[in-house]
């Protein structure tokens, strides 16, 4: 019983680690403060759930969820390409809310507030992931691959270019770099992996509804990224373990379950405010949030 509980927490941590690392690509490396990241997560989850419901093989659905989220990343980058600072973050927040409203209201496709139930467990070339244990192994492998790819991207010449967009856009431009294109690509990469995380989440929980992807849940992901530190992949992973692990202590205190939800959210908010006040660079951060 207890070990099943720990496996569950571990799977959630793995999924959120992917989410945090992918957000860090946009916020930390490219310098795009995207408050609508949760929308990509949701788009990925819905894409994968709906495709497998229509008998598309799981691996195809997994990839499609990343690609589809990435298309929306392109769209968001296009429409916000001329904004920065407060205005950019608010436009992205707005994007997140529009996506949420569509999930809630396009009932024919998403079944609205009822959500989609009975999403099947993945079946990868005969490897049927029925239990949580095997799912944890699968999700960890995917996460390791994703983190490896992102690590390779950010350490490459191309990654340096993204960082140049963040630190000195005009300087990068003077060197003949197309920073407009780089911003779009940065957001697309970020969205792609968030979409994959969404697919992993949908097939693990096996039930999704719009409330999981409401904009207020962006706080958790931001807390993870900022506590871990901007432009630090290691930070995001370690921080995901701490931030998501810590509130689980609440479960061992004898509290009614209706109180645990709000208390968790309040803990995230308090941690976020305290870190902004006392250690805005987080645990392993290299740059300031601007």
């Amino acid at each position: 019983m207890l070990s099943a509980f720990f496996i569950h927490i571990a799977v959630i941590i793995v999924i959120y680690a992917i989410l945090a690392v992918s957000l860090n690509v946009a916020v930390g490396y490219t310098g795009l403060l995207n408050l609508g990241h949760i929308a990509f997560f949701g788009i990925g989850a819905y894409t994968s759930a709906l495709l497998t419901k229509n008998d598309v093989p799981y691996i195809m659905a997994l990839l499609a969820s990343g690609i589809f989220a990435s298309v929306f990343g392109w769209l968001l980058a296009k429409i916000t390409s001329r904004l920065k600072g407060d205005y950019l973050s608010l436009a992205t927040l707005g994007f997140g809310f529009v996506v949420y409203a569509v999930m809630l209201n396009w009932s024919k496709l998403t079944r609205g507030p009822l959500g989609i139930a009975g999403i099947e467990k993945p079946n990868i070339f005969g490897w049927y992931l029925k239990g949580s244990g095997s799912y944890l192994i699968f999700a960890s492998i995917i996460a390791a691959i994703i983190i490896f790819i992102i690590y390779k991207i950010v350490k490459s010449r191309y990654g340096r270019l993204l960082e140049a967009v963040r630190d000195d856009a005009i300087g990068a431009q003077a060197l003949g770099k197309n920073i407009y294109k780089l911003k779009i690509q940065g957001l697309m990469i970020s969205a792609f992996f968030a979409g994959i995380a969404g697919s992993l989440y949908a097939h693990y929980i096996s039930y999704i509804d719009p409330s999981t992807f409401f904009i207020s849940d962006i706080i958790v992901i931001f807390t993870i990224v900022i506590v871990g530190g901007l432009a630090s992949l290691r930070g995001s992973v370690i921080s995901a373990i701490i931030i998501l692990g810590l509130p689980e202590m609440l479960r061992f205190v004898d509290l009614p379950s209706s109180m645990i939800g709000p208390m968790r959210q309040m803990m995230f908010a308090v941690i976020l405010i305290l870190i902004l006040m006392f250690k805005p660079r987080g645990l392993f951060g290299k740059i300031d949030l601007e």
Binding site: L35, S89, L90, I218, F222, I226, V270, L289
Partner: peptide, 15 residues
């Protein structure tokens, strides 16, 4: 920066 204040205010709202 104003962006940090914005994030702090989002956290306050959630709180």
């Amino acid at each position: 920066s104003s962006v940090i204040l914005l994030i702090a205010s989002l956290a306050l709202m959630a709180f």
